[in-house]
Design a protein around this nucleic acid. Structure first.
Lengths: 196, 196
DNA sequence: ATATCATGCGAATAAGTATTCACATGGAGC
DNA sequence: GCTCCATGTGAATACTTATTCGCATGATAT
């Protein structure tokens, strides 16, 4: 029998274990058994702290949302120049993905998007906010003359997000070695060439 | 009992049914039962024509690869101007995704990328070729003066692919209505502003 | 016409999954 | 030290899924 801990602590451990499972083997492998094994506890104990798998999914979504997506808003609200903000947002997003491959995998997983409609709606809204935050920064950059005239903030933000997501996808797949940081750097330099 | 047909015909029907299932409910829902129901035959009959699920996955990957990815190469080999080629490739890719949402879902699904390593390797190689094809067209565009100097063909190709993939992802998710053709058009116009 | 064999199917099997339950236990408060 | 309840667990349950098997049948070659 493992040491007893409070539900508050166990919940965090379970969510972290779930994120680890997703990062390592995908949402498909996110079974109660896998979470229990990773967290080092029995399957039944999972149910002592969560009502079921749905609740774990929600908790994971909350964790990702509050700890990650909020960061961009903070950066965007800062006082630096738009292009600098954009760069910071881009590279912190990449860093987070590199450290927790489970995050993009969870957010863009079929299981969530097709299997948990309510969660999908929440996550979609968050992505929408994220996109608007970036679009706002781009818009400011255009008006301040850092970015060239004529580009559309919304579409450019989508382009940037697509770039990030595609890189995450390509790099978090085993088989072909892929240095996500190096890739990101090259993509960013090229992005600068495109938007200026 | 349904009408008897040759294995060759049944294989095609099964692959098409599989693609339909993926397009409608995702790779997660790609069960033998779902394929059988969609194709209008018994589950046992599936095994009359395919050795197992692995073989169906391979056949689906072959179908997608040969019928879709090859199109870009054909366009690229044509005699039109680079920018025109790029536009044609972009919009035919979008059209194919709009018609068969199962294609991007399958190619970028966790189940394939993490659960079928051999298939993942094959598909990765195909995506790599696709990317190089596009990079080649972009390179030509730069040299012919249609695209601005200084941009990197490879990274710009990745940006374009990311744009397509991100749009496909956002639009093939139920909940928020999303006109993929309209989105694509806006993204393309903005892309032109970026690369010229 | 009929024999044959590829094609088709219902039922059974085996493995995996989420969830529940009866019982164990250890730490916090007395 | 004792009690009690939150925490922890192995076993049981109900369901899904992939796969196999014995048997049915109908198209086709002779």
């Amino acid at each position: 029998m493992i040491q007893k801990k409070s539900t508050r602590v166990r919940k965090e451990e379970i969510v972290q274990a779930a994120l680890e499972v997703v990062g390592g083997k995908g949402v498909r492998a996110l079974t109660i058994a896998a979470i229990a094994a990773t967290a080092g506890m029995s399957e039944a104990n999972i149910y002592r702290h969560f009502g079921g798998k749905e609740e774990i999914f929600s908790a994971l979504a909350d964790f990702i949302g509050s700890s990650v997506m909020g960061k961009a808003a903070t950066i965007a609200a800062g006082s630096r120049k738009p292009l600098e903000k954009l760069e910071t947002i881009f590279f912190s997003h990449i860093a987070i993905i590199a450290e927790h491959p489970g995050i993009p995998r969870f957010v863009f997983s079929e299981d969530v998007l097709l299997g948990h409609p309510i969660l999908a709606k929440t996550l979609n809204a968050r992505i929408g906010n994220y996109m608007e935050t970036i679009a706002g920064v781009i818009d400011a950059g255009i008006h301040e003359g850092e970015l060239k005239q004529g580009i559309s903030p919304r579409e450019t933000a989508l382009t940037l997000l697509g770039m990030i997501q595609f890189t995450a996808l390509r790099c978090t797949v085993g088989g072909h070695a892929c240095d996500i940081d190096a890739e990101a750097k090259k993509l960013w330099i090229n992005f600068l060439t495109l938007v200026r």
